[in-house]
Amino acid sequence: MKSYQLSFKINEDEAPAPDSSRIELAGRDPLILMIEDNEILLELFNYKFKSMPYTFATSNNGWEGLKTAKTLLPDVILLDLMLPGLPGLSVLKSIRESDLPKQPKIIILSSKNREKDIEDGFKLGADDYMTKPFLMKEVLIRVRRLLN
């Protein structure tokens, strides 16, 4: 009777295949990945980061974002928590548990502002937690600081 599958896997099939061509790019601009489902916010960030010495990649879905993170090996990830596909915390945990050659810095950027959410975020290995609404400048400063 259950002939359908929502085709949902996270731990299998896409074991992080470190793309060797990517790793060689050690001298590249820092790569920032933003996983967020608000399109216009992505666009704004895209614009801001473009004017700085950063490479910027985006994903609007938790699952896609995880995959992108594992193939692109970004330096910093800006992560939303309420995401379609896979919740942000699972993306975070999955990245932290993977054997990537280099763990990215992860900043959670979420409207979840309860104590417990923030606690969970740090527990699972986030480097920083910012709640929405946020100051654009502050995000940029925190990103820069994590990169140094």
Binding site: Y4, Q5, S7, F8, M82, L83
Partner: peptide, 19 residues
């Protein structure tokens, strides 16, 4: 007895958007 579908069902519930 839902060994085949249980995973995807639970993942779809986990992404519910609620506080």
């Amino acid at each position: 007895n839902e060994e085949n579908t249980i995973k995807s069902t639970v993942y779809s519930l986990i992404q519910l958007d609620f506080n």
